[in-house]
Simulated assay, not measured.
Amino acid sequence: MSLWILVTLAAAAMQTVRFMLQKQLKGAGLSTGGATFARFIFAAPLAALVASLALAVSGEAFPPLTARFWTFALVGGVGQIVATLATVALFSLRNFAVGIAFTKTETVQVAAFSALILGEAVSLWGWSAIGVGFAGVLLLSRASEGGLRFDPKATALGLLAGGFFGISAIGYRGATLELMPLGFFLRAVLTLACVTASQTVMMAVWLRLRQPGEAGRVVRTWRKTALVGLTGMLGSLGWFTAFSLQNAALVRAVGQVEIVFTLVASALVFRERLHLREAAGIALVVTSLLMIVLALG
């Protein structure tokens, strides 16, 4: 099995753990912004340390960081912040498994972004997969109490999260390519260090302006929040490494195995019951993702 596939599977598993921890932080009294900030403030120094060690071991000099690199990195970083905020907010509306399933429209959106931004064409088979995935989203967007009424807030948050996760994937892929000809791991960890540092600054400023005191609450509860940062850094390192080895659309398509991990977490950790309609929606989304894997393969 290819290295990038193994790394992607590990990243998907770690991301599931991180979302589980963030959901618990939201339930413990931190705001959506605070739970999101915890993801970055503790990850940034860890990423910087790993990057420094990787440079020292490799003997490589610190590469020039061009304007094009920073454009990709910052677009990816902002996209991830918005997507994470939307995902954490979504947890308050729907159960854990369905909340994550909404964000899986990301793969469909990455395929579209790849065609528009990176010039990667999507085949007819791939667009058929998009249709199957959209049908799944329609099922998932039904209001939780049943009937034909849609839940517009949950739908909007899920699509927003998926779209901005897609934008972040394209940005990170572009940033790692800008550091060529460094080895794939160095490109991944250096990009991660730059991105997490900028995300920490942006989130700190945003919380200062919008939710004074929330950043302090995150730091004071470091015994709980630091673990979010650690798992977030490890998951992101996996994604960035995969992006440095393979195109973003294919990485994200394979990474949709995360939904399987999520279903296990939903049942075993949060004791949440999945309704038949929601299970059918998730099944359609997963089917569309498998179709995309075949199309890209």
Rank of each mutant, 00 (worst) to 15 (best):
A86W: 02
L116R: 09
S58Q: 12
E145Y: 11
A73G: 08
F40A: 03
S114C: 10
T107A: 14
I100D: 05
S52M: 15
A156T: 15
G79A: 11
S52Y: 15
G76H: 00
S123R: 11
A111R: 04
E120S: 12
G99M: 09
S52D: 10
T105E: 02
G33Y: 04
T36K: 01
I130G: 01
A97P: 05
A67C: 05
A156Q: 09
I100A: 08
A44F: 10
E60P: 01
S141L: 07
A73I: 03
S123L: 11
S144F: 09
A44G: 07
A44P: 00
A97M: 08
W70M: 09
V78M: 14
V132H: 04
A135T: 13
F37D: 03
R149G: 12
A143F: 00
W127P: 01
L53G: 11
A54Q: 12
V57R: 09
A48N: 08
W125E: 08
T71H: 08
A51F: 07
V88K: 03
L53Q: 10
N95C: 06
F150Y: 15
W125A: 12
V82N: 07
A83S: 14
F96N: 00
T71V: 10
G99W: 02
A56M: 13
E120V: 10
F91E: 01
L93I: 10
F91W: 10
S92L: 10
A97G: 12
A129L: 11
A56P: 04
G126P: 03
R149V: 14
E120F: 03
V137M: 14
A44K: 03
L138P: 02
R94S: 05
R39W: 03
A101E: 06
F69L: 06
A112V: 15
S128V: 12
T36E: 01
L148V: 11
F102M: 10
G147K: 11
F91A: 05
A48G: 08
I130P: 03
G33P: 04
V57P: 00
T66W: 02
T155L: 14
P45K: 04
V132L: 15
F134S: 00
A83T: 02
F72D: 01
L55R: 05
T87P: 01
L74M: 13
